[in-house]
Design a protein around this nucleic acid. Structure first.
Length: 209
DNA sequence: ACCGGGATGTTCT
DNA sequence: GAACATCCCGGTG
C-alpha cells in the first residue's frame, strides 16, 4: 500500500490532450520516483507530425515507440549518447505527442540525488536540466514505456495541491535547429532550478533570469 | 560571466 | 558520415 499522505497519480485524462495545453499545467506538479521527488519547474511540448523538432515527426521507430502508446506513458530516450531525457506522453494513443520534463525543484530524497550526481555543489543544480533530473532521480531507458498512471511502484506524476503559476514564462525550446521558432517551452518565473539552456530562436538570450 | 570543445550512442541522410 | 530535445570542464574577460 502507498503511504496515506502520498498524492495520487494524475489520471489518464489529464494527459489525453494537446501537449501544448498539458505542458504549462504540468508546472508545479510533482515527479515521484521511489523516495526521490521534485516539483516540475520547466517543460517543453513536442507536437508530433506537425513539429519537425519532435522525435515523432517521421512516425514510429523503435526508439520513439512509447510516444505512440497511450497517454500517461513515460518516454525516455538517450540524448547525445550520454544522458537520458524523460517525457510524459500526451494526446490520443497513436498520435505521438509528449511533454519533455526539463527541470525540477528537489523536494524529497535529496541525499539520494546528491549520491547520483557526485560533484554537484548546489542543490539547485541537481535537477536543473533534462539530463540532470534523470540522473538525479535514477531514470534510465529501463523506465521507457512505464505507465505514470497506474504507477505500480514506478515513477508517477502527482498534484500535491500547488496550482500552476498564473503567468508562466514562455519561450522557444532549447537546443533545437528544426522547429526552433515554436514557443513551446514554459517555466516557473524566477525559480532557481530552471535550466540555463538558451531558447533556440533567441541567440544570446538567457533561459532563466 | 561567456564561450568552445569533447564525450558518447542512436538515428538518419 | 553527420546530426543530435546535453552536460561538464577548462579557457578567457
Amino acid at each position: 500500500m502507498a503511504p496515506a499522505l502520498s498524492p495520487a497519480p494524475l489520471p489518464r485524462a489529464f494527459y489525453r490532450r494537446d501537449p501544448r495545453v498539458v505542458a504549462p499545467e504540468l508546472l508545479n506538479k510533482v515527479l515521484v520516483v521511489r523516495e526521490r521527488s521534485g516539483r516540475i519547474v520547466e517543460v517543453e511540448a513536442y507536437a508530433g507530425a506537425e513539429d519537425p523538432g519532435s522525435h515523432a515527426f517521421r512516425g514510429p521507430t523503435p526508439r520513439n515507440a512509447s510516444m505512440f502508446g497511450p497517454p500517461g506513458l513515460l518516454y525516455v530516450y538517450r540524448s547525445y549518447g550520454i544522458h537520458w531525457c524523460a517525457n510524459a506522453v500526451c494526446g490520443d494513443e497513436g498520435v505521438g505527442v509528449a511533454v519533455l520534463l526539463r527541470a525540477l525543484a528537489p523536494l524529497t530524497g535529496l541525499d539520494g540525488m546528491r549520491a547520483a550526481r557526485p560533484g554537484t555543489a548546489r542543490d539547485r543544480d541537481l535537477c536543473s536540466g533534462p539530463g540532470r533530473l534523470c540522473q538525479a532521480l535514477g531514470l534510465t531507458g529501463a523506465h521507457d514505456g512505464a505507465d505514470l498512471v497506474t504507477a505500480e511502484g514506478g515513477p508517477f506524476l502527482a498534484d500535491d495541491g500547488t496550482a500552476p503559476p498564473a503567468a508562466p514564462a514562455n519561450t522557444t525550446r532549447v537546443g533545437l535547429t528544426r522547429g526552433a521558432a515554436h514557443p513551446w517551452r514554459w517555466y516557473v518565473p524566477g525559480d532557481p532550478n530552471v535550466s540555463r539552456g538558451r531558447p533556440s530562436a533567441l541567440p544570446g538570450a538567457r533561459g532563466v533570469r
